[in-house]
Design a protein around this nucleic acid. Sequence first.
DNA 1: TAACATTTAATGTATGTACATATATTTTAA
DNA 2: TTAAAATATATGTACATACATTAAATGTTA
Lengths: 149, 149
Amino acid sequence: MKIEKEIKQDKFHSEYQKLAINILFTSNWLNSTTTKTLKPFGISSQQYNVLRILKGQSPNSISVNNIMERMIDKMSNTSRLVEKLRQKELIERVICEKDRRQVDVKITKKGIELLEKVKTEMNSFNLLTETISEKEAKIINKLLDKMRG
Amino acid sequence: MKIEKEIKQDKFHSEYQKLAINILFTSNWLNSTTTKTLKPFGISSQQYNVLRILKGQSPNSISVNNIMERMIDKMSNTSRLVEKLRQKELIERVICEKDRRQVDVKITKKGIELLEKVKTEMNSFNLLTETISEKEAKIINKLLDKMRG
DNA sequence: TAACATTTAATGTATGTACATATATTTTAA
DNA sequence: TTAAAATATATGTACATACATTAAATGTTA
């Protein structure tokens, strides 16, 4: 649906302003779908992002700082997020012996199993395949990368 | 910069998954720029969005529900956001006489003046003009609209 | 018209988030 | 070698947000 209709605004100052608004709106749209899907599993979309990052490194562990660099939404309090996941026993935290400032984080078996279960219900990406082609997806990806400079 | 480098992930499950992540990442990127610009003015990006909506209707007033429908991020507690703006005297609230459930909201002179001041510093849209062409912006807008179905 | 449903906005509560600051450890350089 | 700087993570605080619930006014219908 046209962004004009989605937010009931019939004209924009420029095509660039419209683009910024369109990206923000589409991001919220995607995020709310994901949040709803994750709700029954008891994790937020940010926690899901961290779990996926850790699964990508598994069976190795990575530092909190390293997690932050890989997050979609680079936030200042990754440690609190990690602590929440630890309380749910989805990850493990060990103080690094080589550098005692660092904390090594690793996904647990329980964490991997949760991701497996989520996977089957995670249809926000599949949703996109019904409306645009892979070629079109590639075009947007290329232009967004260019846009950020 | 390529999204792969931005979040240190060298490959994605599909072009569609990459797209979803790219949109979320770009949205955060845009939002953090806007937030930083607005900080000295003492308003959040959501409050800025509401002010702009009200300016678009000025000198008429619209209901809280109507504001919500026009917001980029349709949140459930628009009334609290409106109350924050009222405390800063940037908007006015009057209970509608025709339908006493409804609250009519209108931007004040002070609110409009704030928007004028913000305008000169609001360069997040201008930022985009340096990296992509108007034609390219149009392409992304069209595809994002198509994507959401 | 009385009872029930719907609409509009506000609020309670728990959790999330940003930002500044603190603490511990390691690195650098005088 | 020791003081200062840098790094990695954690925490305090104020504010934001999601979601469910409440409250008041209006609409609908038996």
